[in-house]
Design a binder for these strands. Structure first.
Length: 302
DNA sequence: ATGCCAGGCACAGCCTGA
């Protein structure tokens, strides 16, 4: 099963590119962010014609999230991130699909910082940590997928120098992401590719795409009940090179086995202890050691 | 240090994104 996340940056103008990507890569489940459209104009029919049923939560001009699934529609669990009844921004959708719980999220950008937008970002992050802790411990296979608007480390950006004051690189933003990971979540891309320069976003300025001057801010996190099924992870970066592309490229994971494995994972989670951060770090270290023994060709930063 | 590009909308210049 292929699960992907894609910040489309406007589903109305980006629909041809979205349909093209769906046809070529055929993901089974897709989390979308930045629909920038009200529910009334969501291209439900076009997506259905392409074989996808959708759950969506739009908003005028900004934000907006959706979960697509091949065939059967995702079963909605919740449409808001708990913790702030006054938060009316469409940034969170949670659903059950193909035996797993998928949380589609669009974390606030937070610029300019400091300021109220940055405060909102950190507050949203705290609410996410709170809710994610419950999801992690639920014994269900869970994936948190979306645009986290955080560059986890300086290795996840072409050059941090000109972004030092940006909300995406602030120590507070990074600490919040670290704190989330410390619950035990596996950062799929980094877990499988510890030594690769990987980017998911290239802004429209200064020919950043042409120079591969990117940032890794779109993430798919897996809990202990789902992580054992992780087979592969990658970025469909070709999408960023198309005409009228979004400034993000889709990120995906390939999850092995089916319902049997899912049930097994749930059963295992009931008896075994969840994956501790230390264990994850050890796994990364082991992978690094394996790579060091036989060095692989390394992508250039820019 | 700033704008660079792009989408959305009170359709004309802003605001927002990251």
């Amino acid at each position: 099963m292929k699960l992907a996340t894609f910040n489309v940056n406007g589903i109305k103008t980006r629909l041809p590119q979205l349909l093209d990507w769906l046809a070529k890569e055929s993901p089974d489940v897709v989390c979308l962010q930045e629909l920038k459209a009200l529910d009334g104009v969501f291209p439900r029919a076009e997506l259905e014609a392409a074989g996808y049923a959708a759950l969506f939560k739009g908003q005028r001009s900004w934000n907006g999230v959706a979960i697509l699934a091949k065939g059967e529609a995702p079963l909605e669990i919740r449409r808001e991130l708990p913790g702030d009844a006054a938060d009316d921004q469409s940034r969170y959708l949670e659903a059950a699909v193909d035996g797993i719980i998928v949380a589609c999220l669009y974390l606030p950008n937070g610029n300019p910082q400091p300021g109220p937008k940055f405060d909102y970002k950190l507050a949203w992050f705290e609410r996410l940590q709170q809710h994610a802790a419950g999801l992690y411990a639920s014994e269900h296979p869970v994936a948190l997928a979306g645009d986290f608007n955080v560059v986890p480390t300086d290795f996840d950006i072409y050059n941090p120098k000109s972004w030092r004051k940006d909300a995406l690189l602030q120590p507070e933003s990074r600490a919040a992401y670290e704190k989330l990971l410390a619950q035990g979540w596996v950062d799929s891309l980094r877990h499988l590719h510890p030594d690769e320069r990987i980017y998911t976003f290239w802004d429209y300025f200064r020919q950043h795409w042409q120079r591969n001057a990117g940032l890794r801010i779109d993430h798919i996190l897996l809990n202990a009940a789902l992580a054992p099924r992780l087979k592969a992870a990658g970025v469909d970066s070709w999408v960023r090179g198309e005409e009228h592309a979004s400034d993000h490229a889709p990120v995906w994971v390939e999850l092995g086995a089916g319902k049997g494995a899912a049930a097994k994972a749930v059963k295992a989670a009931k008896t075994a202890k969840p994956v501790k951060p230390a264990k994850t770090a050890k796994a990364v270290k082991t992978a690094k050691a394996a790579k060091a023994a036989k060095p692989a060709p390394r992508k250039k930063a820019s």
